[in-house]
């Protein structure tokens, strides 16, 4: 058996010498198209095809980002946006985890709460904005609550369906060992529902970003969303595009963190490895 295991390792070692690390190779492949597009954009801007007051060249956008970095405003806006997102994301996730676990596990709780939650889900979350502003003003609380509401639903739905989709056969194993309800939940149900919980977290994060923008567009004096409005009001397209780029970068980073968490905690899953 040991020999069989050893053989592929030897091959792997050889391949490493011959070829570039596959993950680096993937990054390189993925960046070909964006780089080409940016070069074309820069070129077309320089020869005047794109009017600079509508679509400035990438170099100008980069310059505006650099200025913001040096005068410190980039960090101020980014940190406040991240702060709102993280806080709202945490509140939304914790609420979804607790309510979702209860609804998924106890059928009485399900019939008690699920219809109501489904009804609330059909309200477009942005429709809450006026009410939240009326209740909590335009300060931080209304923004955080709006983000939390946005995050709540995808996480909740995924937890509930994750728990309800658990193989009854695994739960029976726990019952044979006389597990208490708490042991069943902590040792079988939660780990088994973890994959769909993580899927929920990632789509929750996506919605969280959407609602950060919404909240900051609505009324804020700081944040990347505010920069968007500010850029629009001051006719500064490079500021708007810079903010969009910032959103893209931050969204990608936060998603990568969750993705890393996912691969780290779900390495036991027997899923197809893409070639």
């Amino acid at each position: 058996m040991k020999e069989v295991i050893a053989i592929p390792k030897v091959n792997e070692g050889k391949e490493k010498h011959r070829r570039i690390n596959p993950s680096i190779q993937r990054v390189l492949l993925g960046s070909i198209v964006p780089i080409l597009l940016i070069l074309a954009w820069e070129y077309l801007s320089r020869i005047g095809v794109f009017p600079p007051h509508l679509l400035p060249a990438p170099s100008i956008i980069l310059q505006s980002l650099m200025t913001m970095t040096t005068d410190g405003s980039l960090w101020t806006h980014t940190s406040i946006t991240l702060y709102r997102l993280v806080l709202g994301f945490l509140f939304g996730t914790v609420a979804a985890l607790i309510i979702g676990a209860a609804v998924g596990y106890f059928s009485t709780v399900e019939s008690l709460l699920d219809p109501l939650i489904q009804a609330f889900r059909s309200i477009p979350s942005l429709a809450w904005v006026p009410l939240f502003i009326l209740w909590m003003g335009i300060g931080e609380p209304s923004k955080v609550v709006l983000i939390a509401v946005g995050v709540f639903f995808p996480v909740y739905l995924n937890i509930v369906s994750g728990i309800q989709g658990i193989d009854r056969k695994l739960i029976e194993v726990g019952k044979i060992y006389h597990f208490s309800s708490w042991q069943l939940i902590s040792k079988i149900i939660l780990p088994a529902a973890l994959p769909s919980f993580l899927v929920g977290l990632r789509s929750g994060l996506g919605l969280g970003w959407m609602f950060v923008v919404a909240a900051e567009l609505m009324g804020a004096s700081t944040g990347i969303g505010y920069l968007l409005v500010y850029g629009q009001n001051t006719y500064a397209p490079e500021l708007i595009i810079s903010s969009i780029v910032l959103f893209a970068i931050l969204g990608k980073i936060t998603d990568a963190i969750l993705k890393g968490l996912e691969t780290k905690t779900l390495h036991w899953q027997d899923t197809i490895v893409k070639k």
């Binding site: 056969k169 695994l170 029976e172 194993v173 079988i188 780990p191 088994a192 973890l194 036991w268 899953q269 027997d270």
Partner: peptide, 10 residues
């Protein structure tokens, strides 16, 4: 049981 019913995460 007929199937092993192991916890895949353990």
């Amino acid at each position: 049981f007929q199937e092993p019913r192991l916890m895949p995460w353990l």
